[in-house]
């Protein structure tokens, strides 16, 4: 009985559980205002449109667990998107798988530069990535001279229509479960496995807890840092192709759009319970955070609230969730003290 209670209270304590309950309550409330909200097609749509943010959020989460911050991921995405699409058009061959792989590799290489700089010069990660972000994007415009591409090869849009399964709803609409969502689920599983069952994963948490202790314990810090930053580069590259799949154009200047994306991604990760001080964070929490953000923006549209309010709301969520995070931490400290005494 007591054990049962302990497990329940432990579960209730978890950030993911709280977030899940909030999601359900939120869904029910919005649905009572606009019954379109909880329809399967809308939910599948949320899953599909959130997959780009989700992909990048996985990368940001890994960086944040190691108590770093990467704000160059949108620049990396812009560069790998431009280079990959342009190159495959110039070569006049390729398919969607090649596109994903090439963009992922370009992203990983750029991320590697970040990782090396962070390790070698022990600089604040925020500043390093702010610098490289500007360098990467500047080089894209000055040397590579990637132009606007308003048309892209057909395999991108083909992939966007591809679904794992489809079904017809009562009112005759065909609803599909997008491969973009599948891609996010696969990547989430991979990250979960790495974080939970490999020494590299433990190393990422260890660095986030105390880099000095990680060094003394004998972790290979260089390797782990390179892994972390090339991983976020890789998912940014993959996410950039998802962007092409969904929006069918390449826009080398759309940093503004990307800034918005950055806000969404970071807000989602923090909302998902990853500590900005490093050391904690889970894949499930991050996914919940991403979906929560998209549920909110989606509901704003459904409720007819002007889209300008979106960034205001997300900004609030970002600050609020950091506050809640800190509060939960202080609660747990008290709880542990009570148990100890």
């Amino acid at each position: 009985m007591q054990k049962q209670q302990q497990i329940t209270s432990k579960l209730l304590f978890r950030h993911e559980t709280i977030l899940f309950i909030i999601m359900i309550v939120f869904g029910v409330v919005v649905n009572s205002i606009n019954p379109a909200f909880l329809k399967v097609e809308n939910l599948f749509d949320i899953l599909k449109t959130s997959s780009i943010t989700g992909m990048m959020a996985l990368g940001v989460m890994v960086v944040m667990i190691s108590s770093g911050m990467d704000i160059s991921f949108t620049a990396i995405a812009t560069v790998s998107m431009g280079v990959t699409v342009r190159m495959l058009i110039a070569l006049d061959k390729g398919n969607i798988v090649v596109a994903f792989l090439v963009a992922g590799i370009i992203g990983a290489l750029l991320g590697c530069i970040n990782g090396f700089l962070v390790y070698r010069f022990k600089l604040p990660t925020l500043i390093v990535t702010l610098g490289t972000s500007s360098i990467f994007h500047g080089l894209l415009l000055s040397i590579l001279k990637i132009p606007y591409l308003y048309t892209v090869p057909g395999y991108y849009s083909d992939f966007s229509r591809l679904s794992l399964f489809t079904f017809t709803t009562a009112d005759g609409a065909v609803v599909g479960f997008s491969y973009l969502t599948v891609l996010l689920f696969v990547m989430a599983c991979v990250v979960w496995l790495i974080l939970r069952f490999t020494m590299v994963g433990r190393g990422i948490y260890a660095i986030g807890g105390s880099i000095e202790a990680a060094k003394r314990a004998g972790f290979n810090i260089l390797f782990i840092q390179l892994f972390i930053y090339s991983f976020i580069g890789f998912v940014s590259g993959v996410a950039s192709i998802e962007y092409v799949v969904m929006f069918r154009h390449v826009h080398p200047f759309n940093m503004m759009n990307m800034m918005n994306m950055m806000l969404n991604v970071i807000a989602a990760v923090v909302l998902g319970g990853t500590s900005i001080n490093g050391g904690t964070g889970t894949v499930l929490g991050t996914l919940f955070g991403v979906w929560m953000i998209y549920m909110i923006t989606n509901s704003l549209i459904l409720m007819g609230i002007p889209s300008e309010w979106e960034s205001v709301v997300i900004g609030f969520i970002l600050i609020l969730s950091i506050g809640v995070n800190a509060y939960q931490k202080s609660l747990r400290k008290v709880e542990v003290k009570i148990i100890e005494s």
Partner: peptide
């Protein structure tokens, strides 16, 4: 300063050096 990882559990902290020394790549 003890060189511990405050964000990890007691078990993980105790086991981590041994795991690193044994060169294992995966853990349970």
């Amino acid at each position: 300063d003890l060189s511990l990882f405050p964000n990890m559990t007691v078990a993980e902290n105790i086991a981590i050096n041994q795991l690193l020394e044994s060169g294992k790549q995966t853990i349970s």
